[in-house]
Every structure is written in C-alpha cells, then in structure tokens.
Design a binder for these strands. Structure first.
Length: 585
DNA sequence: CTAGGGTTAG
C-alpha cells in the first residue's frame, strides 16, 4: 500500500506543474504561441518530470521511487536522480547509494559530475577512499573534470582513513598543479582533518599561514582549531585565537563559544565559564540545547549531579527542550556517583517525554550497573538493546565486557568478545585493554599475553595502559621479575611510564622486599619528570612498613606531608601496628 | 531537496 502511495505522489507531482494561475485559455490559443513555447516546461507533460521527494520516509521508499523513475518516459533528468541519491546518503545508507548508482549505470541513465561526487563521498564514508580515487577514471571517461568538491571529498576521505600524509600531499598537489581553485571548504577540510588526527598545532600554524594569504579561514575553521585546542587542554591558546579571530573581524558563533565553554568547564575554570556566558548573552547569542548539554556534562563529570539537574531545570524554563543527549548525560552522571536508581529513573522517564533512549543511553546505564556491581541488571539491558532494534557499538560491548570480567565471569566475557566480532564490530584499544585487564584480574596471565599478540596483529597498538595492565597482572601473580623486565623494555617501544604504572611497579617491589630497587625507581620517576602522587607515597610507605623499616617509613611520611599529601587509612593503620609492636618490645 | 565543511553524549 505504502509503495503505491509513494508512486502515486511522484506521478502526480510530475504531471501537473502547469497553469498555476488557473487562467482559462482559448482552445486555439496555442496557434498564437511559438513552437518554442509548445515544448517548454509549461506543457502538462513536461519532458523533465519533477519528482516529489517528500514522500520518502525510509530507504525502501527511496529505492522504490528510484525504480519507478527508471521506468518513466521521458526519464527524469540527472538532477532528479542526484536528489534521490542524496536522500539515501542523508539516511547514512552509503552501500545502498552505491547499489542504486550501479543500477543507474546499468540502465544507461545519465550521470554527471554531481553524481560522481556523491559516489566518491559514499566510498569515503565507507572508509574506501581507494575506490573513491578509482571513480576519477569515470570522470575522464565521461569527459568531465574533477572539481573542487571532488578534491575536497577525497581529502576528507584520506583523513577519515587515517592517511594524514597522503591527505596533505593531495592538498599540496592541488595548489602546485592548480588542479582546482581551493575554497573555504578545502581549508576547513584540511584543518579539521589535521585537528582530528591529533595534529592541532600543525593545524594552528596552517591557519595562521592562511590568514596571510588570500584563502581566508572562516568562522568554522577558527572554531575547529579552537575546539581542538580546548580538547588538547590548551584552553589559553584557544582564548588567544578567539581574540585574534575577533580582531580579524570574524564573529564567533554559538559553536565557537560552546567549544570554549566546554574547555573552561572541563578544567574547572567555572568563574571564566560564567563570564563567557555573560559575554554570549551580551552578544545576543542565545544558549541552545548543545550549550546546555555541555554544562550538564561538565557538572556531571565533577559529580555535581544536583547542579546538573538545576541546569536542566533552567533549560526548560527557557523553553529549550532537553533531548536524548541531555538525559543520557544525566544517566552517566548518576551512574558515576553511584546513584544507579536515579539513573534508571531518568532512563525510564525518557519515553514519556517523547524521547527514545539511544544506544549511548543504554551503554551509559549498562556502565552504571556494571560499576555498581549489578551485572545481572546490566546484562538484561544489554539484551534489551537487541529487542528494541538498536545497533550495538564497540562501546556497548566494551562496557558489558568490563562488567562481566569484574564479576569474575571470564568465560562469558570471552564469549561476548567473540560475539562482538561475529557482529562485524572491530575491537579497539579500549576493548583490548578491557579484555586484558579482565583476564589479568582473574589470573589468566598467559591468555592475556596471547591477546596482546592478537591485538598487535590486528593493527591495534598497545599503549602505556595496556602494559600497565599486564605488569599489574604479573605483579599480582608474584612474577615481579618478569614484570620488571617488561617495565624496562617500555622505552624501546617508545612508551613512557606514567604515575599509575610507577605506582604499580614500586608498590610490588616494596611488597616483595626489593626496597632498594623501589627507592631507585622513586628517584628515577622524579628525574623523568613524572611527579609522584599520594598513591606513590602510600605504596612506598606501606612497603617499608611491611619490611619493618619504621625509620625510613617515617622519613618518607614527613616528605609526603611536606608535599601536601596525606596518608590513606591503610598506611595509618600499618603505622599504628608498627608502633604498637615497637612499644611491646 | 543535485555534490563537499565545524560544535554535544558512553
């Protein structure tokens, strides 16, 4: 039935575009018009039918309409086909778009530069920029020239595929060989690509370079770099760049301000954040849902859920509806502070507000249950995802994996890991670290090391966390010697130990009685610019006390106090035990 | 609404 409706609407809009004024014309009036007018678009059955795309609601509608278009005589022009392809791209069904394109070619329908650019974009979004480049051949075959859109899309595709160097090369080639005239999208694509690849400072330099040329970066480009600087924790540089863009006469918009706001909030610079909001209001930039969600998130991350709720309240007072992201952020916030019942309540309240929990809402609540030791509830939710027809992502799986291992359910964890790959989801670094940690916690060190090799084979590079997990596992298993060797091998792998790792290894060395070596490492970590934290002092003192080295422990305790740290409860009770023993003697 | 672009959640 639905298909019929789609077709009928398409035909109706095709047929009667003419005579909108409704004037009555003499039956003979055509005699007075020229032949040119007879064939013009005012005729009832125009040679270029216009298609009504508003009837497309899902991908099936689009494909159905496409098949109808192929059969129409005269056939709709290429522009109409391009509109159709675009509608499928907007639904993120890139493979379907490519299939439709194939059918177009097989049926002999015309394609133009736009069509080919749409196809290249699909390949890029499917992470197959190589096929995108292959389409360049079609351009030449059809007698078309790739244009600035083509190159912008290919550059984006290279960045998406992590081919940063190649992307830069293509951009340079574009300039040197004058393949096309770069525009503001080109600049943004390159700068954004660099930022997202972690080369914020390169992007920053390039931006400053562009300022001096005729390629003027626009507000989007500035905003991208500002956002990246904020995420790289260099908020002050972001603020400077903000001042510079204003200097150049480019007005920051809501996006620019939101990025800065997020940067300030995330680093606890609340006062400045408040001032920024005042500036925004002065500039008549009204806060939108995204801005409010940033504030909700910032409060939640600080554990200030009450304040986060207040922000939501203010949002509603200002007639800005909290959305799925807002509530998902709250779920995450409540989960973080252990108020899992409140998290659940927020989750359950969503449908009543006309909002459907998305996969991230589920992941957040699953995470909340796992972190609060309620793995059964987490598992029930995990299964519900499938029933609701939502697609799992890597995070959902990694979260559930973490929960299962924490509950000691190793076999289930391994099964889930396999299940994830059966669902075509590719484990990332976080997944592997979760898996390794789970195995190590459950004393399956050998198994963990075998997965270390698998991850390397899969092209997932272990980071310092990966090795910290393994070293921790070895230490807990009493294999301090092997742990130390692995620790010493890290610099060769280009990895620098962090505080957490030093704490693990120093703590284990102390416990095993290698106090001298632990002390050496303590000195070494300070020399390498890695400042000891309160955990470092606690594990060291605890190790010394267990070895009955009371005097040395006391000396370290003094130093700890001088640095503004306090001993934890374990350290304190160990001290008391020791002093009691001393007193008894 | 014929093609390519920046910001929010785990």
């Amino acid at each position: 039935m639905k298909k019929m409706r789609v077709f009928a609407m398409a035909v109706i809009s095709r047929g009667f575009a003419a005579n909108k004024r409704g004037t009555v014309t003499s039956p003979l009036s055509f005699l007075s018009s020229s032949f040119h007018n007879l064939t013009h678009k005012n005729m009832p059955f125009s040679p270029n039918p216009r298609i009504d795309f508003s009837c497309i609601h899902d991908v099936d509608d689009a494909v159905f309409l496409f098949r109808q278009m192929l059969r129409m005589r005269p056939q709709p022009c290429v522009v109409e086909f391009n509109k159709l392809l675009t509608s499928i791209v907007k639904m993120k069904k890139y493979s379907v778009t490519l299939n439709v394109f194939d059918e177009m070619r097989q049926s002999g329908a015309l394609v133009d530069e736009c069509t080919l650019n749409i196809v290249i974009n699909c390949y890029c979004l499917l992470n197959r920029v190589d096929f995108g480049f292959a389409i360049l051949g079609s351009f030449f075959k059809c007698g078309y020239k790739p244009d600035v859109t083509t190159f912008n899309t290919l550059i984006k595709g290279l960045f998406l595929g992590d081919k940063v160097v190649e992307a830069e090369k293509l951009f340079k080639k574009l300039l040197m060989l004058k393949l096309c005239e770069p525009d503001e999208v080109t600049i943004l694509t390159v700068i954004n690509g660099l930022c997202k690849a972690g080369h914020t400072l390169t992007a920053y330099d390039l931006l400053r370079l562009f300022e001096k040329t005729s390629f003027k970066p626009d507000v989007k480009t500035y905003s991208t770099v500002i956002d990246s600087l904020c995420k790289d924790r260099i908020v002050d540089d972001a603020l400077q760049l903000l001042a510079k863009m204003i200097d150049k006469g480019i007005s920051p918009n809501i996006v620019t301000y939101s990025s800065i706001l997020q940067g300030l909030c995330n680093f606890g610079r609340w006062k400045e954040a408040k001032d920024l909001i005042t500036v925004m209001v002065d500039h008549k930039i009204s806060l939108d849902a995204v801005t409010f969600n940033i504030l909700v998130d910032a409060f939640c991350k600080e554990g200030l859920v009450k304040e986060a709720e207040d922000v939501v309240e203010i949002m509603m007072q200002r007639n800005i509806s909290p959305n799925v992201v807002t509530y998902t952020t709250l779920i995450d916030g409540y989960s973080l502070v252990g108020q899992i019942d409140k998290a659940r309540k927020v989750f359950d309240s969503m449908p009543g507000k006309g909002l459907k929990p998305c996969i991230i809402s589920y992941s957040s609540l699953i995470n909340g249950y796992c972190k609060n030791g309620k793995v059964e509830e987490a598992w029930a939710l995990f299964l519900e995802v499938r029933r609701k027809g939502l697609d799992y992502n890597v995070v959902t799986y990694s979260t559930m994996l973490h929960g299962l291992f924490c509950a000691g359910r190793c076999a289930d964890g391994l099964k889930l890991f396999k299940d994830m790959q059966d669902h075509q989801l590719i484990p990332n670094l976080v997944t592997y670290n979760t898996l390794l940690n789970g195995l190590c916690m459950n004393k399956q060190i050998v198994e963990a090391f075998s997965f270390l090799h698998i991850m390397e084979e899969q092209g997932v590079n272990p980071n310092i966390t990966t090795y910290s997990i393994l070293i921790h596992g070895l230490c807990k298993d009493g294999k301090v010697e092997i742990a130390r060797d692995l620790f010493n091998s890290l610099p060769c792998k280009g990895l620098r130990p962090n505080v957490q790792l030093y704490n693990i290894i120093i703590g284990s060395l102390c416990q095993e009685g290698h106090v001298e070596e632990a002390k050496c490492l303590f000195v070494e970590m300070e020399k390498s610019g890695c400042a000891p934290d309160s955990v470092t002092y606690n594990v060291c003192i605890q190790g010394l006390l267990k070895r009955k080295l009371l005097a040395e422990a006391k000396a370290l305790l003094d130093e700890m106090h001088k640095r503004g740290f306090s001993p934890d409860s374990t350290t304190v009770s160990l001290f008391l035990d020791q002093q009691q023993e001393e007193g008894l003697r």
